[in-house]
Amino acid sequence: MNSGKTITLAIMDAPYESANSTTALRLIHTALSQGNHVNVFAYEGAVNLTMKAQQPHPNPVKGTSVEEEAHPTTKDWIASLFALAEKNNVKLDWINCGLCVDERGAGDWIDGPRRGGPKELYEVSQSSDVTLVIPTK
């Protein structure tokens, strides 16, 4: 199952703002499903993707409840990616940019991610087969 290959992604979009986030999470899911290791360097608004306090919400316009709306949060999606990595015996190394975290007060995150900076991005990129940067517009 383990391909021995590694993809590094750098992402910077905040949650719930851009289709880039959805595409990045789809890409990570597929890479892990194929048995690849994945490094993620989340910086700028993307450090909010893993915040533990995220809550799904009802939709008052449609009159739907939290359960009916089944609103997906990015922190739950990413938690499921960590579970997928463990199941497939591959590594998901999720690095939240420390300076970006401090600016946003976004340090309380789910289990899995670690704090880092440009040095860590350089290191994981150097040890990867490919690096893809997904910037904001």
Binding site: S3, I7, R26, Q34, D129, V130, P135
Partner: peptide, 18 residues
């Protein structure tokens, strides 16, 4: 699909630009 995109990304000597 994403499966093909991941395979293309991992082809040797590939430069990926978003």
């Amino acid at each position: 699909n994403m499966d093909q995109l991941v395979q293309l990304l991992l082809e040797p000597e590939t430069k990926a630009i978003w």
